[in-house]
Design a protein around this nucleic acid. Structure first.
Lengths: 399, 399
DNA sequence: TGATTAACTCAATCATGTTGAGTTATCAAG
DNA sequence: CTTGATAACTCAACATGATTGAGTTAATCA
């Protein structure tokens, strides 16, 4: 089939020549993408050296990818003697990735091109996020997107879908983020049948982490974490370039962890979350329903908000300590549905624990950085999952 | 080359037919192993169905593995009509895995066969665990092991090596577990040159977790964690069948995390570790230097020890809450250098938080189980790393 | 200007998986 | 006790895709 595969057929555990080609094609694409993020390009011979493949093999793959419109030649480069190497780059609009975020009251959609650039965004209001209502909204959204010029079903690599966790029946019942009627649905195949596209399901924090990898502040990193402000507070973990789901897809519920604060032990998201901020404001009779409200308060130096910020920064330090000790990430990105300026303020001059495995002298990245913010972060991340998949040589796990 | 590869040559990122065969061979082996742990066996056709490979491909691989002495036919089985399927099993002594644990004062070694059974164990005292001293001890140990009957260099798949973290220079200086003179050594290639074998490096907790997977309580699980009593307290995390290292191999330092206790916030290993136990005993003028001493105290219901146990169980509950929320494991195993009876006592009737993503009604495994204990756990785990590698279809991550 | 170098192409070869046509051994129905 | 159905397995031809070695081309260097 194809390297950046569109076929919905489930992959089996065994490998064959087709799979080999798919794997190698993904390697070629990831090399080109990696070069492009550095403002660079690459030629056949260089890719062959990096991959350990023969030049001929790379040549064949490049011919194939070029013919399919995913890459194109972009000049030559002299590297000293010898014939100049023809350079290749990824065609921004050679293919697209679709991302959906299902929320209790709406369906968000983002379409990314191969450069990770947002091509369009859509929002559909939902009365109730039942499977039927979501299915209808997804179908309509897809139809609307296919109507755009230059878009065909064949050019969509797949769909990433973000759903609020926790998945399955858990001890946390009555949790606001749980959706009605989804318990008995195997979501991946449900979505693949619905959209006629390969589907990837993730929680919001992992998707946000992928977004940072595809077009954000963690490009090129293989190990990092992403604290994500969504309904509560989630943690996306990327290890070896792949998201960490846990046994049931419920990993990253960092908001539920009790942490030690000067005021006593509390769940992290009782302090460090959008809801916690709004509660704190409300207890001082200030309402801030939207991100814009919060941003405005921050802009005018609202003392109640600054008070919360001090609390939140203490909680954040504890969270960082936890994450660094447990996961040893290259960095931690802070992102999600909070005003960017507020994230900046949270991140700035944190009194981080220096007695940590993360306090390395040779460190080049800051221990915490501000990632992307805004309400569409999760839908963007959903689409990023698809791009990551297209650019990452895969494995199947054993029995 | 070979599927259970012995060659030291670094694998490249690109795939070819040889790599495909290697991948598929590992799948066949893992299927047979999995069946064997269930007291079962498997035939060609069954493996073909599981892998998605053709029967012919499986047949070829089986012929190859059998010829190399890694598997053998073990009777036939009637599954109703049709020709009975020839069953295969892994030859226990078809190959071996070597495991080393480097400690500040000694080098421990364990040799496992393909069934994960311990063939021999060795201990070499070290004055100081400098690279030179360790190299000499490793060389001598390997020579002694090769002298055993039935053992040849070719039958050793590789060496797993466990070293106390943290790796590299970190903010935690003066840490007792840091070894002298290792900062500037790329340990994997150092060990491969030294032993002329493929080498895998891990921290103690991850290795212990692998040991549970190969021959312990977590066989067949893809997602779990392992709380490990070593020098302090470590957490081994297996996600998707692979150990989680973090960016620098320092993941799992759960002992350093501050947790909220009735007595105030403290690092977890200030309560839950062998050293904490010994300190607690010492503050009541009881000395217990060895595991036997501790086991004896426990056996005679020493009130000071029981007092510690109550404290430790509270801390353990907090740790479990942390791990479950962050990693969503299938289960958590408790293991390491503590008397088994004490681990049992820790695990028994824990007042676990029911408000957790882990409190699932359909859960079949307990949320926490007792794993293997004893001083050789880490060296065993080191060898288990090699077996896991031999039985797990691999990938190389992209650039 | 010619030697050197590196990128690249072409054609032959090789490893491996797949496919389809048998063959064999067992069960079950007549 | 025969016969047909069924499933495991083998054999041979084929397809895919990577590798190899012998050119070819276009640069730099002396």
């Amino acid at each position: 089939m194809t390297s950046v595969s569109r076929n919905t057929k489930r992959q089996s555990a065994g490998a064959n020549s087709e799979r080999t080609r798919q794997h190698n094609s993904k390697f070629v694409l990831s090399t080109l993408r990696h070069a492009q993020t550095q403002g660079d390009t690459a030629g056949r011979a260089e890719i062959a050296r990096l991959s350990g493949l023969s030049i001929q093999a790379v040549s064949n793959i490049i011919a194939d990818l070029e013919q399919r419109g995913l890459i194109r030649a972009c000049g030559k480069r002299n590297q000293g003697r010898g014939q100049p190497a023809v350079q290749y780059e990824i065609c921004a609009n050679g293919a697209y990735a679709l991302g959906f975020e299902v929320r209790p009251d709406a369906l968000f959609c983002t379409l990314l091109n191969l450069h990770g650039e947002t091509m369009c965004q859509k929002r559909s209001a939902l009365m109730r996020a039942t499977p039927d209502a979501v299915a209808q909204a997804m179908r309509e959204t897809k139809t609307a997107i296919l109507a755009e010029p230059g878009l065909a079903h064949e050019k969509i690599l797949g769909a990433g879908i973000v759903m609020p966790g926790p998945f399955g029946t858990t001890g946390i019942s009555g949790h606001d983020s749980e959706l009605p009627g989804w318990q008995d649905i195997e979501i991946t195949s449900w979505a693949e049948d619905l959209l006629k596209l390969p589907a990837l399901i993730e929680n919001d924090a992992n998707a946000a982490a992928m977004a940072e990898r595809i077009s954000g502040v963690t490009q090129g990193l293989q190990h990092y974490a992403c604290l994500y402000f969504g309904a509560g507070l989630g943690l996306g973990v990327i290890s070896n370039g792949q998201a960490l789901h846990g046994a049931r897809g419920n990993a990253g519920e960092i908001g539920h962890i009790r942490i030690a604060l000067p005021s006593g032990a509390q769940p992290l998201e009782a302090v460090l979350s959008r809801l916690a901020l709004q509660d704190h404001l409300k207890s001082n009779s200030i309402t801030a329903d939207t991100s814009e409200d919060i941003a405005a308060l921050f802009h005018e130096n609202c003392p109640t908000l600054l008070e919360w910020l001090d609390l939140a920064r203490i909680a954040l330090c504890e969270a960082i300590n936890l994450i660094e000790n447990l996961l040893d990430p290259s960095t931690i990105a802070l992102c999600g549905a909070m005003p960017g300026a507020l994230l900046d303020a949270l991140v700035k001059d944190l009194p981080l624990n220096q007695h940590s495995v993360a306090a390395r002298p040779e460190r080049t990245l800051p221990r915490i950085i501000r990632g992307s913010s805004g309400p569409m972060t999760a839908a963007l991340g959903a689409a990023a999952l698809v791009l990551n998949d297209a650019f990452t040589p895969q494995i199947t796990t054993s029995a």
